[in-house]
Simulated assay, not measured.
Amino acid sequence: MQAILATLGYVLSPDQSRVLMIRRDTRPDDLHYGYYNGLGGKLQPDEDVVTGMRREVAEEAGLECHRLDLAGTISWPGFGRNGENWFGFLFRIPDWSGTPLAGNPEGSLHWVEKADLLAGRLPMWESDRNFLPLVFAAEPRPFHGVMPFAGGRATGWSYV
């Protein structure tokens, strides 16, 4: 399967109770418009996933990542605007430095309570509720999930 390789990172507050999220609110034509999401994006050619995650956090939030914990991977067949397949590497980022930006060209940045995120009290992809408990588990272990999409909606979810 050919897929777009991407990163998705969750920057944690020093006390681990909040997560820095982007609210995609600048471009109404954005596939993610109005939703809260982690930081990240497509890998550049010849870029490894850790370098790509660090670059995305620096570009989107102005932060330098010191520790990245791989939470898992997800295959998203059919996720793209034109049905492209995506493959994502998800990270928890508990150690970083800098002062977060207020926003970037894709949206505004917000510290949100991890409890609110896990309870689904924020506008986000409905499907994110499937994997966020694995990302933020009390005793996390790396996972691999498959979440097929059709017509802009998840049609299933499985993980190991």
Rank of each mutant, 00 (worst) to 15 (best):
R67I: 03
M53T: 15
L43D: 04
L43P: 11
G62Q: 12
G80I: 06
F87E: 15
Y33I: 04
T73I: 05
E47I: 12
G41V: 07
Y35L: 15
A61C: 15
E59S: 00
D46I: 00
E64Y: 06
Y33C: 03
G88K: 13
N37R: 15
P45N: 05
E47R: 15
V49G: 00
G34S: 10
V49M: 10
T73D: 01
G34A: 12
K42Y: 02
Y36H: 15
A71P: 06
G41R: 09
E60K: 11
L63E: 02
G80H: 04
L39E: 01
N85G: 01
G62E: 06
L70M: 06
E56H: 14
R67Y: 00
R54W: 00
W76S: 04
G78Y: 06
Y35Q: 15
G62A: 14
D69P: 01
G72M: 10
F79W: 14
G41E: 04
G38K: 03
Y36T: 11
D46K: 03
N37K: 14
V50K: 03
D46W: 08
D46N: 10
F79Q: 14
R54K: 14
D69Q: 04
G38S: 01
K42D: 05
Y36V: 02
P45T: 08
L43G: 07
S75V: 02
V57D: 05
Y35C: 11
H66F: 06
F79P: 03
T51Q: 05
Q44H: 11
N85T: 12
Q44G: 08
E64S: 10
L70T: 09
R54C: 10
D48V: 13
E84Q: 15
R67P: 00
G80A: 06
E60Y: 03
E47V: 13
I74T: 13
F79I: 02
H66R: 12
L70A: 03
R55D: 05
G62F: 13
L68Y: 04
D69T: 04
R54G: 05
R81Y: 02
R55V: 11
L68M: 13
C65A: 14
A61S: 10
R81P: 03
I74Q: 09
K42W: 00
E47T: 14
A71I: 11
W76L: 15
D48P: 14
C65T: 11
G34C: 12
A61M: 14
N37E: 09
G40M: 12
T51W: 04
G88A: 13
Y36Q: 02
L68E: 13
W76N: 04
G52M: 06
